[in-house]
Each structure stands twice: as structure tokens, then as C-alpha cells.
Amino acid sequence: MDKMVPYPSNSIVPERDLDKKPILETHHLGVDFGGLTAVDDFSITVGRTEISGLIGPNGAGKTTVFNLLTNVYQPTRGDIMLDGMTTARKTCFQVNKMGIARTFQNIRLFSNMSVLDNVKIGLHNSINQNLFSAMTHLFNYGKSEKAARDEAMSLLEFFDMQDVADSEAGSLPYGAQRRLEIARALATHPKIILLDEPAAGMNPSETSELMENIRRIRDNFGIAVLLIEHDMKLVMNICEGICVLDHGKVIAKGSPDEIKSNPKVIEAYLGKKKEGDANA
């Protein structure tokens, strides 16, 4: 591939990002579990401030792609470039330090801890505190804890959660838990955030609030968002580029309008729904 042109010709990256190097690229990524090929030949390019979507029917391999991007699974084939650097042979925590953060399809909070502590744990790598000051509470302990608290509080304020800072994370309502998980991921200062079904289990008003929040995340933090979602209204509304996965393979890539009218997508995904609608 020509190094001078980082974007492939069929790129769906928005124009404003085209003059900058992409934040995330995957080349022919694939993973096998025993005999099952869960993901195959998965290539995408994500611009630095792009909001993009990854959709597909149940079991298509979307979460598996996230697990590959965050090195939870090692790819069988292909490679991943995060901000121009390969993530091969890195561990999960190292790729997070490189600038990728995520949320989980089935929420994974530290549920016995307070909301504030959950965000503080997200701030882990930006807290300047060594083991000695941690054990003695001397030197920069006070300063670093206060800085962490202030930043965690401002992140909670961003999601209008400052009033529940001291509540136990597990006691929050579902929608708030999803927001907290996003806040915790943002606390790691990522360059790109991966959201796995952020609207799952939310009511319509929570979903529209979420859409607003996703845009605000992009605008405020200037980062890229890659999300998996089954709620088509949300995806079509906020995603600038969409990638459709079916049986582990990319079957379509394009703008929301292109995806909506792509016959392959309609057949694999939207088509099934229409059939169901017609039958009902």
C-alpha cells in the first residue's frame, strides 16, 4: 500500500479527517476459534474525529471485533494499527495506554465501589502517585488524590452524574450504569472509544440523550467513536460511516444512506426485519 495515501479509495472517513493520519486501521483482520471463523478479512479505517458504526445480525462477530481491537483476543490473521502503531504483542492494559478505551455489552462496572471510585480507577494511569506515597499518604499523595477527584468529578458532571458520585455503582439504574461505564472509559484519556451496544435496554428518551452525549464526547474530547448498535435509528442518526458485518465478514461499508439502500444489507439484516414486519 502507498504510504502517502493512508486512506483507501473506498474510504468512508469524513472529509475533515482526511488530512490527518487515521486513528485506527485494521488490515485483513481475522480470528478463528477452533474450527469456527468468527471474523474474517476485516479491514476498516477510522478518522480521528469520526463517529462510525459497526452493525450486523446477532452472532455476526461485532463484539469479537472489539475484543480483537482491545487485544482481549489475539488475531489469527491481519494486523491493527492504532494511531500509526501496531498493537501486535501488546497486552490489554498496554493497548488502553496506547489510546483505545471501551465499554462492554454486558456492563462491567466495579459494582461494589462508589461511582466516583469507578471513574478514579479509569484515571489510574494519569494519577501521579508512587507506591511509597500510596502506603504512607506522604509526599504527593494529597495533591494527586485531589487532582484525581477533581477530574473524576468533572467527568461525572459531563454526564450529569455528580449527585450520585458517592452511591454504589451497582445500585444505579441501568441507563446510569451505561453512562458511568462511558465516563470510566473516557477517564483513560483515549484517542478512540469503542461502545458495545450503548443503547441496549434504554428507553427512547434515554436513547436520544445518549445520541446527544455521543456527539458531545466527539466534540468535547476531539476523539473518534466506534459503536456497535442494534438500534437503527441511533446508528443512522449519528454515524458518519457504517460497516456491516455478517457471519464474520464485511458485507458493506458506506454512509447511512448507502447502507440503507444496499441490497446485500437489506438481505442479510434489514431484509429479515422487513419480512418479519410483513408477516406480522
Binding site: C92, N96, R108, L109, M113, I121, I127, Q129, M135, R184
Partner: peptide, 20 residues
């Protein structure tokens, strides 16, 4: 402290702790 929170995070949810 930062270290103690990390330890408890590992206990509560190892995968999430790694992800941050």
C-alpha cells in the same frame, strides 16, 4: 490509594480493570 483501588478493581472485574 491509586494502588489499592487498582487491586480492588482487579478483584471486582479483572477484564474491566485491564480495559482501563
Amino acid at each position: 490509594s491509586k494502588s489499592g483501588r487498582a487491586v480492588m478493581a482487579i478483584r471486582d472485574n479483572r477484564i474491566a480493570a485491564e480495559s482501563v
